[in-house]
């Protein structure tokens, strides 16, 4: 969390995260190279590099895609999410090295511009093996580049979180393109069962985790009923909310996080202004709602970040009667105080 832009807001845990990430990348590349050279000493270096970096980029993309749903299923995985953007940028650079080797090896040195060659050399022949697969990889890399280039909070702030989030959801399009790239490419050449099984297992894992997380989320999206005459909705029992934590409910199509802390109840929008993280899965720390994704903080009474930060989330009016929490379904203007209600009356 920072009130001004820096290339990287380093802290101890980010350093540890990146150190482990780089170590993992180096370990994979070295082991892949050593095993390949041992069993296939006549492999040419450019293809060895191409394969090592390509397989690692694809594996890393699987991990990146799995972190989100894993965090929804078990908050302990949030430690993997905290610096996920560095993992994404790493994934892009691994893919870029793979692509540079492909263009330099397979497309340069002929009579056609090497980049144009990606699109015009292979033609559809009507057979599975004849599907040009390299354009899929090219477009996937373009998406990964866009995401890596706009990964900094500068772009998040200037593009606005909804646009930034939409742009970064294109990672699923990139993944789909890469599945096609691999299916019509290396799986047609390396016809070994393991390659196909690995690919299918990866795809199924990504889909299954997203389905499981979505199923779990669906519970939060059940629209509340029981609108009273004063316009407030019966949201939950006070006892349903753990101390310093929240219960998430759906009101007028929006998720609302109802926090209990210091004998008070406050309700705020569930959407963090940083990366739209789920505030309702956060915790009150130092008197502030703390987003589980990157630790952005908001005062529960006002929805405002403590100075010098300027982020704000919408607040909701709350009442407590007979041990039940009632929330007015229309948000107040950003930053305006919503009264915190004492739970003991």
């Amino acid at each position: 969390m920072s009130s001004q832009y820096q290339a990287v807001q380093w802290n101890r845990q980010k350093r540890i995260y990146d150190l482990l990430l780089i170590s993992g990348v180096a370990l994979y590349l070295v082991v892949f190279a050593v095993v390949t050279e041992h069993y296939f000493p006549y492999v040419t270096e450019e293809i060895l590099i191409m394969r090592a970096f390509g397989t690692l980029a694809f594996l890393l993309l699987h991990l990146i895609l799995c972190i989100g749903p894993l965090c929804r299923l078990n908050p302990k995985f949030l430690c993997l999410l905290y610096n996920r953007r560095h993992m994404g940028v790493t994934c892009f650079f691994l893919g870029l090295i793979h692509a540079v080797m492909v263009v330099a090896t397979y497309h340069a040195g002929g009579d056609i511009n090497p980049i144009a060659s990606i699109f015009v050399t292979s033609r559809l022949t009507g057979s599975l093996a004849g599907v040009p697969f390299q354009p899929f990889g090219f477009f996937a890399l373009c998406i990964l580049f866009l995401m890596a280039a706009t990964s900094h909070d500068f772009w998040l702030s200037n593009l606005t979180p909804p646009i930034w989030k939409t742009l970064h959801m294109l990672v699923y399009a990139a993944y789909f393109l890469l599945v096609l790239h691999v299916t019509f490419g290396v799986l047609q050449g390396e016809a070994g069962l393991l390659y196909s099984v690995t690919m299918a297992a990866g795809l199924l894992t990504v889909i299954a985790l997203h389905k499981a997380a979505a199923w779990r989320e669906r519970r939060n999206d059940r629209e509340l009923e029981g609108l009273r005459g004063d316009g407030f909705c019966d949201a939950c029992s006070v006892d349903d909310i753990p101390e310093n934590r929240a219960r998430v409910v759906c009101l007028s199509g929006e998720r609302v996080a109802i926090f209990k802390y210091d004998g008070k109840i406050s309700a705020v929008s569930n959407v963090c202004q940083h990366q739209n993280g789920p505030l309702g899965e956060g915790k009150i720390v130092f008197g502030c709602i703390t987003c589980p994704w990157h630790g952005y903080q908001y005062r529960p009474e006002t929805g405002e970040s403590p100075p010098p930060f300027k982020e704000r989330v919408a607040t909701y009016d709350v009442r407590v009667q007979n041990g039940r929490v009632f929330v007015f379904p229309k948000p107040k203007m950003d930053g305006m105080s919503a009264p915190a209600i004492l739970t003991r009356q």
Binding site: G24, L27, Y28, L29, V31, F32, A33, V35, T36, Y39, F40, Y42, V43, R51, A52, T55, L59, G189, E190, A191, G192, L194, Y195, T198
Partner: peptide
């Protein structure tokens, strides 16, 4: 990661 590095490298089939 280590397992994948070993398996994917070992199971390459077209290197002569």
């Amino acid at each position: 990661g280590l397992g994948f590095a070993i398996l994917l490298a070992r199971m390459q089939r077209t290197i002569g």
